[in-house]
Write a protein that binds this DNA or RNA. Structure first.
Lengths: 248, 248
DNA sequence: AAAAAATGAATGTTTTTGATTGATTTTTGA
DNA sequence: TCAAAAATCAATCAAAAACATTCATTTTTT
């Protein structure tokens, strides 16, 4: 079977099924596993699908899909340490902005004993904050499917009425010269606004985000302190540009 | 079964059932208990659900609703009929406001095939709309614990930038002379604003709300059409004051 | 026919899985 | 109300499945 034909077949399967197992494709095409792997990684880099362990899943042409890629169990402990370091910076009476993201989500359990008010643009955060009975305001705006966050112009407008003692943000890329970046421009706008409105901002990232550059620029490194967990070399490198908290 | 497929299945179960037992998921997926535990904790840390002893709950479940299982089928069915009658009034291209409440929540499944944009002030609604992939805007504001709705002055301000073809509201009291009423003044403000901004408004209530008066006045009966399920006598009585849709 | 590209088998590595353990929580029954 | 019993849980570990990579072989292109 021709390469082109295989690719077509794979995409057809995905159009019908949303997720397809490797074995299914092997059976349907009669090609070897190696070949199908090659096909999948080609189709992935062309943006036609997303590989997952055991097969592939349809790509709804989203710019990003952090929800499924972020949360392999491996980084759970790292996230938690970073979250804890962030929570330690929060004091009673503060007005706190919490951005959407799994790392910021991990902060919430540590906030339960603090007398604070939180503002967020994230639905999962809002749900969790509610559950932990923390006084919360939600930023209005357009609900983005992939991140469950409220973004866009309306979100920015809705934020402008608040001021924060401190803001905690997730980020997809952190780079010495390119600064903080994230895939979706509308999300970048919200993050940028949060930084503008906060007396002090922190960006929470696991090690994999360092030296990465994503599509939309949010701010230069100067604009926020980085909280992460990384090697002393990386820490030293980034310390030249901004304050770094290494949650070791 | 692939990890992603399992995750999808779990979220699907939760979208239908609000609460799902570990054993149910194990049976449906054929995976081991260990694997499902891992799935649940991953989905939880991504903010898609909340784990509870014995299984998981949708994070749009009302916190103060311990009697969820005890609700009589009759009541659920009544809500559903009312919701369906409401959904029938929605046409492609409309901008729709959905107020917080269990009856308005019941509308969402019927919206899946419609090309509409929804604005809501309810977290549970937002979560459900997200799941059904319906374009959604969320009104900002203060998060009220008991109803999981966004209320208050900020919510009103956030709404004023929108205009609706149609608004669907829950209500606690409906009375011939006292009009539409609800316990919380801040919530009343939001409902009132929605009515102001909509070309046409509907109030969805089960029979028990008729002839009731609650603390805060929202509007007179004239301001909205009532959708309910009641006796012909009650229907005739309320028809003197405003339009009534009896979802029988 | 030679060069380039694609293939499939083999390799060692990483990820996922399910069983087992002992700890924790909930339920039961006095 | 309390303590025992049952159910559920988190943590650990070895087996299994899936993975990327390499390399010799086959197919296609020039």
């Amino acid at each position: 079977m021709l390469t082109k034909k295989r690719h077509q077949l794979i995409l057809e399967l995905l159009a019908r099924e949303e997720v397809v197992k490797m074995q299914t494709i092997v059976d349907q095409t009669g090609a070897s596993e190696s070949t199908i792997r090659r096909d999948l990684s080609q189709l992935e880099s062309a943006g036609h699908l997303r590989r997952v362990h055991g097969g592939a899943t349809a790509n709804h042409m989203q710019i990003d899909e952090p929800s499924y890629f972020e949360k392999s169990d491996r980084f759970v402990e790292e996230k938690d340490r970073i979250a804890q370091a962030a929570a330690d910076l929060i004091e009673d009476g503060m007005y706190v902005y919490l951005d959407a993201g799994t790392t910021t989500l991990a902060i919430v359990p540590y906030l339960e004993q603090k007398a604070i008010t939180v503002v967020t643009n994230s639905l999962p955060l809002a749900n969790t904050l509610l559950y932990h009975r923390i006084p919360t305001f939600v930023v209005g705006g357009q609900l983005k499917h992939s991140t469950q966050a409220l973004v866009g112009y309306n979100a920015r407008e809705g934020m402008l009425i608040y001021h924060f003692d401190v803001a905690f943000l997730g980020m997809n890329g952190v780079h010495p010269t390119q600064g903080f970046t994230t895939p979706d421009p509308e999300e970048a706008l919200v993050k940028k606004t949060a930084i503008e409105l906060a007396k002090k901002s922190y960006v929470l990232v696991d090690e994999t985000k360092l030296d990465e550059i994503s599509f939309s620029r949010v701010a230069s490194l100067r604009a926020a302190t980085i909280i992460t967990m990384t090697s002393s070399e990386q820490e030293a490198k980034y310390s030249q540009y901004t304050e770094v908290v290494n949650a070791k």
